[in-house]
Simulated scan of single mutants.
Amino acid sequence: MFKLEIDPQQLQQLITEAVEKALERNSFSNVNQPTLFDKKQLMGFLGIGSTKASELLNREDFPVIREFGHPRVPLHALMIWIDEHTEWVRANAKGYWEHKGSIA
């Protein structure tokens, strides 16, 4: 029988290093994203054109703040909206949002 002994501190260090590497590779871990997108930033972030951006900004269910003179889209609300409107999530994660509770 094979027996493996691992020092808990060494294991913690390996886990910490792995998490840090994963966060470095994740583009959302960088603070270079604005918290509020204007139309042009939204277009760049989503890789869409002006017409599609205007369609989204005019949807009733799209997370837009209009109190700043021009429409702004909060990044966190956009990510929630994307999750809620992804076909796979609707088909495979029934009850997820009710279980998790509202974030926005």
Rank of each mutant, 00 (worst) to 15 (best):
15 I>R: 06
14 L>K: 12
47 G>Y: 00
47 G>L: 01
74 P>E: 12
79 M>L: 12
64 V>N: 05
27 S>H: 08
1 M>C: 12
5 E>C: 07
3 K>V: 12
62 F>C: 04
90 R>I: 09
27 S>R: 15
54 S>W: 11
69 G>S: 04
74 P>C: 01
49 G>D: 13
1 M>P: 14
34 P>H: 04
64 V>L: 01
9 Q>W: 03
76 H>V: 13
87 E>C: 09
104 A>N: 07
37 F>D: 13
23 L>N: 13
65 I>P: 03
54 S>Q: 14
43 M>N: 11
8 P>Y: 02
17 E>V: 10
20 E>H: 04
14 L>P: 10
33 Q>E: 15
4 L>D: 14
55 E>C: 12
24 E>C: 05
3 K>P: 03
4 L>P: 02
49 G>K: 00
46 L>P: 06
76 H>N: 15
14 L>C: 02
23 L>K: 11
85 H>T: 05
49 G>P: 05
27 S>Q: 01
61 D>H: 01
37 F>R: 01
75 L>F: 05
38 D>F: 13
86 T>Y: 04
31 V>N: 03
53 A>L: 07
91 A>I: 11
34 P>D: 02
36 L>W: 08
85 H>S: 03
84 E>K: 05
71 P>V: 04
103 I>D: 13
6 I>R: 10
52 K>C: 04
61 D>T: 02
93 A>G: 09
39 K>C: 09
66 R>M: 07
101 G>E: 06
84 E>G: 00
32 N>R: 03
27 S>K: 09
47 G>E: 12
10 Q>A: 14
94 K>C: 03
1 M>A: 15
29 S>H: 13
34 P>W: 07
98 E>L: 01
72 R>Y: 06
76 H>G: 04
10 Q>D: 11
90 R>H: 01
4 L>Q: 15
48 I>Y: 06
35 T>S: 06
103 I>W: 12
77 A>Q: 11
30 N>K: 11
99 H>P: 03
14 L>S: 15
99 H>S: 14
93 A>D: 10
52 K>M: 08
32 N>D: 12
30 N>P: 00
35 T>Y: 07
38 D>C: 00
11 L>R: 11
18 A>V: 04
14 L>G: 15
26 N>L: 03
